[in-house]
């Protein structure tokens, strides 16, 4: 392999490693922000929604419906008889049991949620289900705390948005820079080969050989650096050295950028191919 081609392969491979590290950096930071959001939401998990209802059937119906939701962690129903028994046992009210029996206590249902999934739409859904089954049910939930958590979590979102925006801009800059870099490098090495091709043609070599060789080298200079990067990424994922997975399409974009740059280069060199 010619030294020039080898040098270009190494340079472009290093460039693509830098570009890919940007993808990984972005994913890593997004993950950190997402974790932060989850941690904030998870503060909701220990706080249950408590429903007081005199209709035990309704509570069981609500339980059946809510069981299918991903964001519901666990459900507990405590029937009124058990509540009175527990109250008597806990507060040693055996002498007042007659008094208690005169009062009708409501049944209680506690709904524990997976905080990270319990957003506005889920909250609305749970309220709707409860009211559909028992209009008179009394819902006890710390709405203020829930709203505070939502605001706190939403405050993380601008950082994620900014990161996504900065990532897009950085990609644009890298693409433009790579195109310019590749064009100038390619032209430099092609000009260095002018004498070779002049002698080649004088000696009887085919006129279109230079164009053929240019496109063959362009193919090699696109495939090898992208392939090396993709191979290294694939191996790192396969052998568990890397936990972050990036979109495979990014490698196709890298390949496309290189091919586009070579196509542009060929336009600059077209006179030399004739």
């Amino acid at each position: 392999m010619k030294k020039g081609i080898f040098f270009q392969i190494i340079t472009i491979t290093i460039f693509l490693i830098f570009w890919n590290s940007l993808h990984f950096g972005k994913h890593l930071h997004i993950r950190i922000f997402e974790q932060k959001k989850i941690q904030i939401y998870q503060k909701l998990s220990p706080i249950p929604i408590i429903i007081f209802s005199y209709k035990l059937d309704s509570l069981y119906s609500i339980k059946t419906k809510l069981n299918s939701f991903l964001w519901v962690d666990s459900l507990q129903i405590e029937e009124q008889t058990k509540i009175s028994e527990r109250l008597i046992a806990e507060y040693q009210l055996s002498q007042s049991s007659e008094v208690l029996s005169r009062y009708t206590l409501p049944n209680v249902m506690k709904i524990y949620l997976k905080g990270e999934f319990f957003h506005k739409s889920e909250k609305d859904a749970i309220w709707r289900i409860i009211k559909e089954n028992d209009e008179a049910a009394d819902i006890n939930y710390d709405n203020e705390f829930w709203e505070k958590i939502q605001v706190e979590a939403d405050n993380v979102q601008p950082s994620i948005n900014f990161l996504n925006f900065a990532y897009l801009i950085a990609n644009g800059v890298i693409i433009v820079f790579l195109i310019f870099f590749v064009i100038f490098m390619r032209i430099h090495f092609e000009i260095k080969r002018d004498q070779f091709w002049k002698i080649f043609q004088i000696s009887g070599g085919k006129k279109n050989s230079r164009a053929k060789m240019f496109f063959l080298n362009s193919f090699i200079l696109s495939i090898i650096p992208t392939g090396l990067n993709f191979g290294a990424y694939f191996a790192a994922i396969y052998f568990d050295y890397l936990q972050i997975q990036i979109d495979i399409k990014l490698f196709i974009i890298e390949l496309g950028t290189l091919m586009f740059a070579y196509l542009l280069t060929s336009l600059f060199l077209i006179r030399r191919f004739k």
């Binding site: 002698i199 004088i202 000696s203 085919k206």
Partner: peptide
């Protein structure tokens, strides 16, 4: 495009 003649001139044309 496909030369069928070869011209050898006075000056050397070598790599």
């Amino acid at each position: 495009r496909k030369k069928k003649t070869i011209l050898i001139e006075t000056g050397p044309h070598l790599l």
